[in-house]
Amino acid sequence: MAEASISVDQDQFICSVCLDLLQDPVTVPCGHNYCKKCITDVWDFDKKGIYRCPSCKQSFAPRPGLGKNLVIAEMVEKLKKTRSQAAPPASVHTGSGDVQCDSCTGIKQKAVKSCLECRSSYCQNHLDQHESLFRGKGHDLMDVTGRLQEMMCSRHGKILEIYCRTDQRCICMLCLVDEHKNHDTVSTSAARTEKQKHLGETQIKLNQKIQKKEKDIQELREAVASHKRSAQTAVEDSEKIFTELVRFIEKRRSEVMKMIRDQERAAVSRAEIKLERLEKEINELKKRDAELKQLSHTQDHVHFLQSLSSASISLSGSTDGYSVSPHLTFSDVVNSVSQFRDKLQQFCREETEQMTETGRFICIHSYLFIKCEFPLDMRINLQMCFGVCSENHPGHHCS
């Protein structure tokens, strides 16, 4: 005999608590089916000893026992097999920062709405199931949030919908009639409006401060850029001036060296001429001395007297008026160069001190910025000191 085919609505096997296929299904006395864990958790949470059916709200006392519904369990297993053989529906998996669906088993899907009454977030599939079960039953939906537990009172498990101004915190309705009785309270929406106004004023002040700081930053950057340009110009100008000074000193050094060498050659030349003359005179004198020695040994008296008379005449006509200093020095030149060096060093020290005193230190808000100003006549002073002519002073003559 052929087995009869019965069409069954899958929604009949959905747990109204977790909104997923029944797991270990049990039946409560009113006939509704739930996952054993789901209905146990619901009843364990109720501390008042009143056990209601989440679907029809029928209450039971005492707490009824829970027996496994074998028929429903078998049909759920067949339904799971049918689902696994069917093509998986298109879904959106959770990514970084997304809220997961609390009802999905296996791979969690991205939640699209949250229910404060159920304290759960649902993907689109489980949201449709939730709406079919609880539409019109006071289950308000809100934009998905991962802060559901923070929005519930940790003491009473109710939504935080009251703001206590006295204690500056959010409370639930049960808190209002309990420890917050006679406190200054408003709804969270009203408190939000008040705080939002204050927040707006704070944001305006913050934006003004940000704009002021950004302006300060811009001014500081422009000042730094200007300082760098000024410093670069000063470096280039100073380098040019010092190059001119070095060139001038090199020229003067060459002139002094040439002067010393010229004087040396002139003195040596004069001395060599005198030496040559003296050597000739010495040779003549030696020749006369030899003749006199020979004459002193002659036996011819007449010849002796005649020769001695001519020799005496020759001796009386000799010249020996040469005057040459044996210690020729250039100490005067060295002293002049030393004085030039001392004056140069002294001038450099004085100008350096003047440049240091001229530099101005400017404090801009919370930073220290140094602005250096060099005397406009510094280059002119240096040129005039060392005899370097300037185009700005055509009437100046180098000394």
Rank of each mutant, 00 (worst) to 15 (best):
Q168S: 07
L292W: 11
L127P: 03
K293P: 06
T329E: 05
Q23C: 04
V268D: 11
P375S: 02
R265I: 14
L292Q: 00
I282R: 14
M259G: 05
L295I: 11
D289Y: 06
T145R: 01
L19N: 09
N283T: 14
S121R: 00
G317D: 15
I217H: 09
L382M: 04
H93S: 06
C38V: 09
K371T: 02
N381S: 07
D143C: 02
M378E: 06
K181R: 14
M173D: 11
T233D: 14
L328V: 12
A73H: 02
C30P: 06
Q263N: 13
C53T: 09
Y367F: 09
K68C: 08
D143R: 06
D143M: 09
Q109F: 10
T105L: 13
M142W: 10
V324F: 13
K240R: 14
T188S: 03
T298W: 09
A2H: 11
I14N: 00
S154H: 09
C398S: 12
E77A: 08
L382N: 05
S103Y: 02
E222H: 10
Q12S: 10
I210S: 08
D46N: 15
T94G: 04
K228M: 06
P394K: 07
D300I: 06
K209W: 02
V17Q: 06
D11M: 14
S366K: 12
Q306P: 01
K78A: 13
E264L: 07
F369W: 10
V246Y: 08
E350Y: 01
S84P: 00
D46A: 06
K47W: 03
L295G: 09
T193E: 13
G321E: 15
H32G: 06
R379A: 05
E150Q: 13
L220V: 01
A231Q: 03
V256Q: 11
C172W: 02
E150R: 11
N33M: 06
K212V: 08
E351R: 14
K215R: 11
G65I: 08
H327W: 01
T166M: 01
I273F: 12
K343A: 11
K274P: 00
K251N: 06
F369V: 03
L19W: 00
Q346E: 15
H156V: 03
M173A: 14
R169H: 13
P394V: 00
A290N: 12
E3L: 01
D140A: 14
L206M: 15
V76F: 02
H303K: 13
P394I: 00
I210Y: 07
S366Y: 04
V334D: 13
D184M: 03
S325I: 02
R165N: 09
A223Q: 11
C118I: 00
H126L: 02
A234P: 00
Q232R: 10
S120L: 12
V42M: 00
F242P: 05
H198S: 12
R229W: 01
H180F: 05
C38D: 15
S16R: 08
F386L: 07
E255S: 12
R135A: 15
S16M: 10
D320M: 14
C175R: 00
H93M: 08
D11R: 09
D140R: 15
R165T: 01
V76T: 11
D143I: 04
S114N: 04
S307Y: 00
A225M: 06
V246M: 14
D20V: 04
Q100D: 12
N207M: 05
E373V: 12
F386G: 00
S314A: 15
